[in-house]
Amino acid sequence: MIGELIALGKLLLPIALTSLVVIIVLMIAHKFLLGDKSLNKESALPRKLILMGLYLVSFLAIALALPVVESTRNQVIGLFGIVLSGVIAFSSTSIVANIMAGIVLRFTKPFRTGDFIRVNGYFGRVSEKGLFDTEIQTEQRELVAFTNSYLTSNPITVIRSSGTIISANLSIGYDHSHSRIEKFLVEAAGNAGLEEPFVEIIELGNYSISYRVSGLLAEVKSLISSRSRLYANILDNLHGAQIEIMSPNFINSRQINDQPPAIPKPERLKKTEVEAESNPESIIFDKAEEAEQKELKVMTLSEQIKTLQTQIKDADSETKERLKLKIERLQLTLKTAEEKPAKQ
């Protein structure tokens, strides 16, 4: 009886030790990789991928330590491979699909944190990127989350950080020369801070001509306020020149000869009444702006650390000590920047 127990103990010892080691390693990995609750989705993404890899390796280690014959062990490993392949094959509507899509987005990098994107009618700035979903902050300051599989299966419009075109459409009657109108529209775009403004005639309607004035906005972060300034300058320039802006429906709903032009009288505000130029983007996209600044800071610190680590190889002993202290300070700053939670 004792001999049978000893034999059974020897038989179960490998699987018991392997299971114990696997449990300890996974507990330490969970605490080390995901124990910090202040991590945002972008910082946690690579850690979650590492943890997934550890789970796969742990299962294979347990399978190899099973007290069975080699043919049975191979069947268990083969079954695991079939199950894993089946999960990936049928992952179009599952969690695995979002994980795979998150990996694809991370490597292709169609956009980065802080970019303006448009997806199926939704427009805003990217405020967070995670393993399962991506979050944007809209013009109403709302936070909208898209699953990563949704983003990979739908067209994404990304506004280039180097600049974008801002446009405004309006209709003017045939009683005004198009060259005169184009002059005022180009001037309005220039006053709004747009570079290289131009005007297009997009339609010759039954009652009016449709124009489009456009210009290059170099600082895309001021997209909302710049668009508003463009509209305001168009109104000021055209109304100041006694040019009426009205739609065909408005033309047909009244007799022009009996009514004055639909142009408001200009108002002159006192200096104390003139409002300072507002910056609505700082309120609308506060979380996205903070997330972008955090990501840029982390990238800058990481590059500085890599540069110093390269320099320390060829430095003398005194310089090495100084560089080591500088690297330690930068690493501490980097850790603090990564752990700082994004503003909700």
Rank of each mutant, 00 (worst) to 15 (best):
N148F: 04
L151K: 05
S71L: 15
G53L: 08
G121R: 07
I103N: 04
G35E: 13
K287L: 03
E203G: 01
A101F: 10
N257I: 12
R329G: 06
R141E: 11
I117N: 06
D316Y: 09
K297C: 08
A63F: 09
L143Q: 03
G53M: 10
E277T: 05
K10Q: 11
Y122G: 00
A337S: 14
A97V: 03
S177G: 12
G114V: 04
G9Q: 00
V144Q: 04
K297H: 09
S253G: 11
E135V: 12
V186L: 15
Y174G: 01
P67I: 04
Y207T: 00
E203T: 06
K320W: 00
G114N: 10
A276R: 15
E142S: 02
T333G: 06
L323W: 01
L56E: 12
L51E: 04
P197D: 07
V104Y: 14
L143V: 02
I172C: 14
Y122Q: 13
L269Y: 06
N120S: 04
S149F: 14
E295I: 11
L204S: 09
I6W: 15
Q140A: 07
E273I: 03
N206W: 00
F111C: 07
G215W: 03
A101K: 06
V57A: 15
S282Q: 11
G86W: 05
L323D: 04
T319A: 07
M52C: 08
N154C: 00
M100V: 14
L185R: 06
T272Y: 02
Y231N: 13
M1Q: 08
R268S: 02
L269P: 00
K183Y: 14
I24S: 11
K343M: 09
I234A: 13
I327F: 05
K41N: 15
Q304D: 09
K10C: 10
F111Q: 07
F285M: 11
L131C: 05
F250P: 00
K287D: 02
L34D: 11
Q140V: 00
L332Y: 07
T108H: 08
S177Y: 05
Y211M: 03
S278Y: 02
K271L: 15
A168E: 14
G130A: 15
N206D: 07
V76N: 13
I327T: 01
E281G: 11
Y211C: 02
A29T: 00
Q309E: 09
E328I: 02
E142Q: 13
Q311L: 12
K270D: 11
V68Y: 15
K31Y: 12
V87P: 00
N74Q: 14
A89D: 05
L143H: 03
G215Q: 04
F90P: 02
N249I: 09
